[in-house]
Amino acid sequence: MICVDISKCTGCKRCETACAFFHTKQVSNHLSRIKVLNLYENGIDSPVVCQQCNERYCINECPNEALSIGSLVEILVDMDVCSLCANCEDACPIGAIQLFNDEVLVCNLCSGDTECIMACTEEALSFETQEENSSLSEYKLTSVKLTPSQKRFEYVRKQGIELRKTWRENRA
C-alpha cells in the first residue's frame, strides 16, 4: 500500500498531478486516484489514497462483484460489470474511491511502478507491503452521509491533530 508521512507533505499536489497524467494524459483532481487536501486553516497538507483497509468496505458493498483484490493487495475494478451505483464511494470512510465520468477511480498501485511516489520530492510517500492491513473502522461511523471530499477532509483533519502537537512541542 501507499503510506503517507503527513509530516513531510508540503501540499504541492505533485502526486495528484502525476497520477492523473499517467492514467489519462490530462491533469485533474477529479482524474487522480490520490487527492491532496490543503487545510489553509491550520497548515496541514496531505494526500488521501486507498489504504487497503482490513474491512474492505468498498468490496463488501458492491452488488455486482465488480471489485476484487489484486496481486499487490490493490483494489481492481471491472468496469464491464460495474453498474455505477456508487455504493463503493458511499462505503469508503476516507473518500479514497470515487466515480468520475462513468468510471470508478481508486489507486491500483500502477501495477507496482507507482507514479505518485516517484513524483514526490519530499519522501512523504512510500510503498509498503504489510502482513496486516490497517483498520479504518474509527473513521466509518462519522463518515456516513458525507461527500467523498468531506470524508477526505475529516480524515486529514484528524491526522493533523497529532502532527500539530509535535509542532507546538518542538517550538516550546
Partner: peptide, 13 residues
C-alpha cells in the same frame, strides 16, 4: 519554521 509549503506542482517548495 515548522514545515515547508508549496504552490501547485512545484518541486522547490
Amino acid at each position: 519554521k515548522v514545515k515547508n509549503k508549496s504552490c501547485f506542482n512545484c518541486n522547490l517548495h
